[in-house]
Computed example of a mutant assay.
Amino acid sequence: MSDREDQLVGEFPFTPIQERAQQKRKALVESGHALFILKGYDQTTAKEIAANAGVATGTFYRYFSDKRQLLMSLLEDQIDALLPPEPNWATSDPESLLALLLETHDNRLKELGLQRVLPELLHKDSELADVLATARRNIHSKILTGLIKAREKDLTWKDLDLDTITWSMMLIAENVPNKEAHSGKQADYHEVAKVICRMIFPPEVMKKLKEDKNGK
């Protein structure tokens, strides 16, 4: 967890040591996770989290200052999981690798579930918005660096701005989980990867990479 994320969570009122107390705190965390996903952040109260965990409301405040602190404790170390994956363009089959990365990322988001809560918070929680913006800039920089290295090997289009390609790729990748809601169809990760790779690689490069993979 970074220093910035640590500031988001803040200092807990009490850190349990005994197993029974740890179990109560774990129950509250699991209850909050479930209710945030089910009802959303604004519609979930500390009282409901405590009741769903089978403890008194006072017990909630023994472990957490408020529901925001509980949510931030769920998000700690998970910020990067909310962002698009960083591909390795040096592979002999970038399309298949990217499809696998997108599918893994989507499954991780579904398991975490908390990305549904973020839109409620970002417009009113400037600290969280800053942390996510910094994380996005970091992954943008990493993806762009990889594309620059690919261009140095004459793999990418020469007339396209790599920063714009990086931004476009991130927009597509971030919205893959929303495709079903928008079009009624589940995302085909290989088709999405194909679109992204066509933005990056000329046809002759993709052909050569696939031939190299097949040993031709």
Score class of each variant (00 low, 15 high):
1 M>L: 08
2 S>P: 01
2 S>H: 10
3 D>R: 10
4 R>K: 14
4 R>A: 15
8 L>K: 04
10 G>E: 09
11 E>M: 14
13 P>W: 06
14 F>K: 11
16 P>L: 09
17 I>W: 09
18 Q>W: 09
19 E>C: 03
20 R>F: 11
22 Q>A: 08
22 Q>I: 12
24 K>S: 14
26 K>N: 11
27 A>I: 02
31 S>E: 04
33 H>N: 05
34 A>G: 00
36 F>Y: 04
38 L>V: 01
42 D>F: 05
44 T>Q: 00
46 A>W: 00
46 A>V: 00
46 A>Q: 01
47 K>V: 01
49 I>E: 00
49 I>P: 01
51 A>E: 03
53 A>P: 04
54 G>P: 07
55 V>T: 10
57 T>F: 02
57 T>L: 01
59 T>C: 07
61 Y>H: 06
61 Y>V: 01
66 D>Q: 01
66 D>G: 00
66 D>F: 00
70 L>E: 01
73 S>M: 06
74 L>P: 02
75 L>I: 05
84 P>E: 02
85 P>V: 05
86 E>A: 08
89 W>L: 10
91 T>C: 07
92 S>Y: 08
92 S>K: 15
94 P>H: 09
95 E>G: 00
95 E>C: 10
96 S>Y: 05
96 S>N: 13
99 A>R: 05
100 L>W: 07
101 L>A: 09
102 L>N: 04
104 T>D: 13
105 H>L: 03
107 N>P: 00
107 N>S: 10
110 K>H: 09
114 L>A: 04
114 L>K: 08
119 P>V: 04
119 P>Y: 05
119 P>M: 02
120 E>F: 06
120 E>I: 03
124 K>M: 07
124 K>I: 11
126 S>Q: 13
126 S>F: 09
127 E>Y: 09
127 E>S: 15
128 L>W: 07
134 T>R: 14
136 R>N: 07
136 R>Q: 15
142 K>W: 07
144 L>E: 13
146 G>K: 10
149 K>T: 12
156 T>A: 06
157 W>F: 15
157 W>P: 06
159 D>Q: 12
159 D>K: 14
160 L>E: 12
160 L>W: 12
161 D>E: 14
163 D>N: 13
165 I>S: 05
166 T>F: 11
166 T>Q: 10
167 W>H: 15
171 L>T: 09
172 I>R: 04
176 V>L: 02
177 P>I: 04
179 K>T: 12
179 K>Y: 06
181 A>R: 10
181 A>K: 13
182 H>A: 13
185 K>P: 01
185 K>Q: 14
186 Q>R: 15
187 A>I: 03
188 D>I: 05
189 Y>C: 03
190 H>F: 13
193 A>Q: 05
195 V>A: 13
196 I>Y: 10
196 I>P: 02
196 I>C: 07
197 C>K: 06
197 C>G: 03
198 R>E: 15
199 M>K: 03
199 M>T: 06
201 F>G: 04
201 F>W: 08
203 P>D: 08
204 E>S: 11
206 M>G: 12
207 K>D: 11
208 K>S: 12
208 K>E: 12
210 K>V: 08
211 E>N: 14
212 D>N: 14
214 N>S: 10
216 K>E: 12
